[in-house]
């Protein structure tokens, strides 16, 4: 059985910055418990002698040259999708707490 509780769902939602309603927390707790029970079966197959694969096609040392390209956006284009800006910078509401 999984250890998914309403509290852990709330904690995860906090980490993921999603302001879940109480109803959603209740639903997700039930659903995730079932899903986690199923997906947890992977640990049965994953023995110590098996290496992990993070990329399906192995490549290494994929680099680009240190050259500026035409991918650079104008400030206007950079800001074009912003919900709010001051003409050159993106605007956000006050930040809680201290800088990181």
């Amino acid at each position: 059985m999984s250890d998914i509780s309403e509290d852990s769902v709330r904690h995860l939602a906090g980490l993921a910055r999603i302001d879940l309603t109480n109803d959603e927390v209740t639903h997700l707790t039930a659903e995730l418990s079932k899903i986690v029970d199923v997906v947890a079966t992977v640990s049965a197959a994953a023995t110590d002698d098996v290496p992990a694969t993070s990329h399906p096609i192995p490549l290494t040392n994929v680099y680009r040259d240190d050259v500026v390209t035409d991918d650079v956006l104008t400030t206007e284009k950079a800001l074009s999708g912003a919900p709010e800006h001051d003409g050159s910078r993106f605007k956000v509401s006050a930040i809680l707490g201290e800088e990181q």
């Binding site: 680009r64 390209t69 991918d71 650079v72 956006l73 950079a78």
Partner: peptide, 20 residues
Amino acid sequence: SSAPNEFGGEPNSNVTPVCL
């Protein structure tokens, strides 16, 4: 990203889609 690595400059002028 291939945006210039430059100090100063107009805000949000040294950016590509990757930087944003």
